[in-house]
Simulated assay, not measured.
Amino acid sequence: MTADPTMTTFAGLHHRPGVPLLLPNAWDHASAAALAARGFPAIGTTSLAVAAAAGLPDGEGATREQTLALALTLGAGPWLLSVDAEDGFSPDPSEVAALARELWAVGVAGVNLEDGLGPVDRHAAKIAAVKAAAPGLFVNARTDTYWSGDGDERDTLRRLDAYQQAGADGVFVPGLTDPRRIAALVRHLEAPLNILYSPAGPTVAQLADLGVRRISLGSLLYRRALGAALDAVTDIAAGRTPDGTTPTYPEVRALERNVSVSRSANASG
C-alpha cells in the first residue's frame, strides 16, 4: 500500500482540507521528543527560546550559531522539523541560501523566514535563493505587517504575492486574528496560509473552518513553561504544593533515550 503523501511529507501536511497542521514549537530535544510522543508529526523551533537560552536578543540576527546547533540536535529526530531562522541572519540572499543548505543537510524539512518589514524585493530574493539552493526545503515566508506593522491590507497582499512568486511554499502572517481578514487572505492566496495561534483569537477549529492550513504556537509553549516554573517555585516558597503536570525523572530520561535510539537507527539505515 502506498503511503499517503499528505501524512508523510512536511509539505503534504499543509494540504489536508479542513485539517490544518498544528505546529508546536520546541526549544530543546526533550521538549521536541515530548511533543512528538503526544502525536505531533511535525515540530517547529522558536527563535525567542533560542535567543533567551543564550541571553541574546531575538529578531536581531544574533543567533545563527545557536539556531544551527539546535537544528543539528533536532534534525535527526523522528519528526518533521521546521526551523525559525528569523530573516536568515543576513541581508545577503547568497548567505541565506548557504544557511538553507546547512539546514537541509542536517535533516530539516522547513524553514521560516521573516521580512521584518524590510524591502519586499530583498526578502523575495532570499526566498528564491533558498529554493534554488535547497529545492526540497519548505519555505514559510513570513510578513510582519500585523506583527510589528500597522496591519495594512494592501501591503500585506503586495508582500505575500511577491513571496509566492519567488517560490514560497507557504506564507505566514503572525498577529492577524480577525476572522474576516483571515478568510479574505485564504481566498486570495494560492499558497497555504499560516496563522499564529493566539489565546484571545480564533480557536483551532475556527481557523480550520476559515481555511487556514497551518497553525503555529510560536513561543507560547516556552513562555508557558517559564511561567509554570515561576508558579511552582512561588508555591513551594509559600508552603503550597505546586499544581500542574510534573514529568518524572525516568519519563524525562526516556525521552533522551528515544532520541538516541532514533539517531542510531538513522545512522545504521
Rank of each mutant, 00 (worst) to 15 (best):
G12Q: 01
F89Q: 06
I195K: 00
I195R: 00
A97T: 06
G151D: 02
R159G: 05
L72W: 12
A232L: 03
L196A: 14
A52L: 07
R158Q: 11
A208S: 00
D84W: 06
A37N: 08
S47L: 09
M1K: 09
A32M: 03
G167V: 13
T245E: 03
L56P: 02
S216Y: 00
Y197I: 10
A109L: 05
I43N: 07
D161I: 14
R122E: 14
A105Y: 09
D243W: 08
R214A: 05
D121W: 04
A124T: 12
V259W: 11
Y146W: 15
V106A: 11
L22Q: 00
P202C: 02
E153L: 15
A267I: 08
G110K: 05
L196K: 06
Q66P: 07
V212S: 00
I182Y: 02
D115K: 12
E102W: 12
H14F: 02
T73V: 13
A100T: 00
R240S: 01
A124H: 10
L21H: 03
V120L: 14
L72Y: 14
V83K: 04
D58H: 10
R181W: 12
P192S: 04
G110P: 03
P250V: 01
L113W: 06
A265I: 11
D161S: 15
A267N: 08
L210R: 06
G211N: 00
L21F: 05
L137D: 04
R257T: 05
V261G: 06
N266Y: 09
A141S: 05
A238M: 01
S94T: 11
Q206L: 08
V120F: 07
D161W: 15
G88S: 08
Y249G: 04
L255A: 13
P247Y: 09
P57Q: 15
R187V: 03
S268C: 09
S260T: 13
D115A: 10
L210I: 02
D231M: 09
D28A: 04
V212Y: 00
L196N: 10
R101C: 11
D121I: 07
L176Y: 09
E102A: 15
D144L: 08
L72K: 14
P247I: 01
A76F: 06
P135L: 13
G175Q: 11
E60Y: 12
G167E: 11
W27A: 08
L13R: 05
G167R: 11
D231G: 02
H188D: 13
L196Q: 12
P179E: 06
R16H: 02
L70D: 09
A34M: 14
T8D: 01
H123V: 11
A33M: 13
T45A: 13
L72A: 15
R64E: 12
D87T: 14
P174M: 11
S268M: 10
P17V: 05
N25G: 14
G211E: 01
I43K: 05
G110I: 03
I215P: 03
P199R: 07
T203E: 02
Q165G: 13
S47T: 07
M7E: 12
G75M: 10
G107L: 08
